[in-house]
């Protein structure tokens, strides 16, 4: 299915995403276009394969630097470095907020 729904855990994307929010993710967004800085994306953590949600900061040599919006609570490219295109699962299309 080209669209997936995920539930958000934790607080590293505050204030954009809250713990418990649902996100609708388009898995085929990047078939025809490249991920752009500012896109909120779901990706696989390069070390442990966990699904994580981050914001794309910039691209360099086809690799992507991602960061959490809440820098104090986020583990992101600052520690695990650039991620490859296949690690990106899809783009967040819509947020269904809790309460």
């Amino acid at each position: 299915m080209p669209v997936s729904i995920f539930r958000v855990k934790d607080k590293s994307m505050l204030p954009s995403l809250n713990d418990g929010d649902y996100i609708i993710v388009n898995r085929i967004s990047y078939l025809l276009s490249s991920p752009k800085p500012g896109d909120m994306v779901v990706l696989r953590h390069p070390m442990n394969g966990m699904l994580i949600v981050k914001r794309l900061s910039h691209e360099r040599n086809g690799m992507f630097y991602v960061m959490g919006d809440n820098l104090k609570e986020s583990e992101d490219s600052r520690s695990f470095g650039y991620v490859s295109r296949p690690a990106i699962v899809g783009k967040v299309l819509h947020i269904v907020r809790k309460g």
Partner: peptide
């Protein structure tokens, strides 16, 4: 729907 389908979770911190 989540209660029935059990959506995968995405962690923001890991």
């Amino acid at each position: 729907i989540d209660k029935i389908m059990h959506f995968k979770t995405v962690s923001a911190h890991c």
